[in-house]
């Protein structure tokens, strides 16, 4: 399959997924009828205490807030790591980041909550902590992946170090950096479903309610939009 065909296919998939998600949010009655058809035994098929739209907005807010803060902090720290002095401590940061990978994101939430109490704040904090290192490392990996010859050619053309960074290294590093941002967004959308455990709301609320009452319709009401959201981010970015 050529890259062009794949691009078109991904865009079409993204449009379809977005349309389904939009319909779920815009037409609760229709969604209820469909869930009744699929789960005829369940009396309740939609979560009753909050609308799906409210929970979706909560979910996106938590994920977006955490991603935004992590992007700013990770970006600054990544820039520090790119300075000649920072480069000398890169292997330390990589080692710590590898260690961080063995830590489940739920565990970070579970450890922050006893200190901060229930609510969205501990979830955002946990997600920020969890996202900073990957963002940082992707910036460094992106910039260092730019071939030396290219940078050298730019130097030969008389570009200063700053110009080389802004006009050559950074643009060429963007695909890797964007890949890191995409990964972070997907991880945060996923981890935000766990916010329901600690009172942060979001699409995990109906999932957990459904699990607690053995009601698969509620589980699907939360799981489907969360899955669609992650898939759309994956297709669009």
């Amino acid at each position: 399959m050529t890259a062009g065909v794949r691009y078109v296919r991904d865009r079409i998939a993204a449009v379809i997924l977005t349309a389904v998600l939009g319909w779920m949010l815009a037409d609760p009655d229709g969604l209820g009828r469909v869930l009744h058809l699929v789960f005829p035994d369940e009396r309740v098929v939609l979560y009753e205490r909050q609308t799906l739209t409210q929970m979706f907005v909560d979910h996106v807010t938590v994920a977006a807030a955490a991603s935004g803060v992590a992007l700013v902090i990770g970006g600054v720290l990544g820039a520090v790591l790119l300075t000649p002095l920072g480069r000398r401590f890169e292997d330390l940061v990589v080692t710590i980041a590898d260690f961080g990978q063995t830590f489940p994101s739920v565990a970070v939430i579970a450890l922050v909550v006893p200190a901060m109490g229930y609510g969205w704040e501990p979830v955002v904090l946990a997600l920020v902590i969890y996202s900073i290192l990957p963002i940082m490392l992707n910036i460094v990996a992106g910039v260092t992946s730019v071939p030396y010859d290219v940078v050298d050619a730019a130097r030969g053309m008389g570009l200063s170090a700053r110009q080389r960074f802004w006009h050559v290294q950074l643009p060429l590093a963007m695909p890797v950096i964007m890949g890191g941002i995409k990964n972070m967004l997907i991880i945060n959308v996923s981890a935000a479903t766990l916010g329901a455990l600690v009172g942060a709301g979001g699409l995990g609320v109906p999932i957990m309610a459904g699990i607690g009452s053995f009601n698969n319709a509620l589980v699907v009401e939360g799981a489907l939009p969360a899955a669609l959201l992650a898939l759309i981010i994956d297709q669009v970015l």
Binding site: I186, V189, S190, A191, T193, L194, L203, G204, I207, G210, I211, V219, V220, G222, A223, L224, A226, A227, A230, L231, I233, D234
Partner: peptide
């Protein structure tokens, strides 16, 4: 790409 809890759900 699917979120863990949503995938399970």
């Amino acid at each position: 790409v699917l979120p863990t809890l949503a995938f399970i759900g």
